[in-house]
């Protein structure tokens, strides 16, 4: 399937004093037009690194060693920075986890949205203010005229996230990367924000990559889910199928560890061990092998097969 975004065989490492960290290895993922794909996994599994690599805003210590990132026919990795800067914000927009940190604390939120309009759209300077107010209205900020003049510290976390969304949507991007957009917000605010994102995506056929550690949230909002563990994508499947029949042992363990899945505390299973140290030069082929009850010698030695079946993939020698 050729989608709007096609990531194939992407590997990325960080050169650090403590050694080379293999943060992403042979990651492939595609997102179709208008599709919402969830990227889930524990903290440290490489979810954010992957999104930064798509945006071309990775840390200077990061080096992409293999792979391609194709966005509507363009190779993002080969693109000069200037051209990439035109695409960021216009074609691919991102909302970050902590809106208070991501917004400029000393500029009014209306001005910050105006910046996006000035850089990425053909909105005339004299229309910018009206457009900003209209955008704030579209993300349901009450009293948008007045709130456009507010500073981020004067707004609640939920309101700041709405402003972030307004900024991201200002130039009508075709792909939105939402990195933990509702972490730290109340469930009621979360539901409102997620509803807003879905509405925006539906209105303009926008594709969304939703990065989250919350499996329930991903299951509720995504068409397809990709599960990450220690820099590998271990399984991708349509949401319903992933929860009905998880095929990778890690996916199954992750689902069993979610409190919503358990009737009593005894049903709740933890995943033994922790993520492997990604600096180790002798990482096993399957990075989940040390935590897996089905692991055998083959898992540590032989490269992982990528089993494809009806739009689903699983990287495991012994899938469930």
């Amino acid at each position: 399937m050729s989608g709007l975004l096609d990531i194939s065989g992407l590997s990325l490492e960080f050169r650090t004093r403590g050694g080379t960290v293999s943060a992403l290895q042979n990651v492939s993922l595609s997102i179709g037009k208008g599709e919402t794909v969830g990227l889930v996994g524990e903290s440290g599994s490489g979810k954010s690194v992957l999104s930064y690599a798509i945006m071309g805003i990775q840390d200077p210590a990061a080096r992409i060693t293999a792979g391609r990132v194709n966005f509507s026919g363009m190779d993002l990795l080969a693109m000069p920075q200037r051209q990439l800067a035109d695409i960021r914000g216009r074609e691919i927009a991102m909302i970050f986890q902590n809106p208070r940190v991501a917004l400029n604390p000393i500029r009014r939120v209306g001005d910050q949205i105006g910046d996006v309009l000035a850089r990425h759209t053909t909105t005339l300077a004299r229309d910018r203010e009206a457009r900003t107010v209209a955008i704030l209205q579209s993300v349901r900020i009450p009293d948008p005229q007045r709130r456009a003049r507010a500073y981020p510290f004067e707004m609640s976390g939920g309101q700041c996230q709405r402003v972030m969304i307004a900024m991201a949507l200002a130039a009508s991007p075709s792909l939105l990367i939402a990195d933990e957009p509702t972490t730290g917000l109340d469930v009621t605010t979360q539901a409102a924000i997620m509803g807003l994102l879905r509405e925006a995506a539906g209105d303009r056929q926008m594709s969304t990559l939703l990065i989250t550690h919350d499996l329930s949230l991903a299951s509720e909002r995504c068409d397809r889910i990709a599960v990450m563990h220690a820099g590998h994508i271990v399984e991708t499947a349509p949401t319903r199928e992933l929860f009905a029949h998880p095929r990778h042992p890690y996916t199954a363990a992750l689902i069993r560890s979610v409190p919503a899945s358990a009737a009593t505390l005894a049903d709740l299973d933890a995943i033994p061990g922790s993520l492997p140290d990604l600096r180790a030069p002798d990482l096993p082929a399957c990075r989940f092998a040390e935590r897996c009850s089905r692991a055998q010698a083959r898992c540590r030695e032989q490269p992982l097969p990528q089993v494809h079946k009806q739009g689903a993939t699983v990287a495991c020698h012994f899938p469930l």
Partner: peptide
Amino acid sequence: LVDALPRLGVPASNAPL
């Protein structure tokens, strides 16, 4: 609060909260 809670494996309803 209960309605706003995402449910595992169940798509969100379209009804706005």
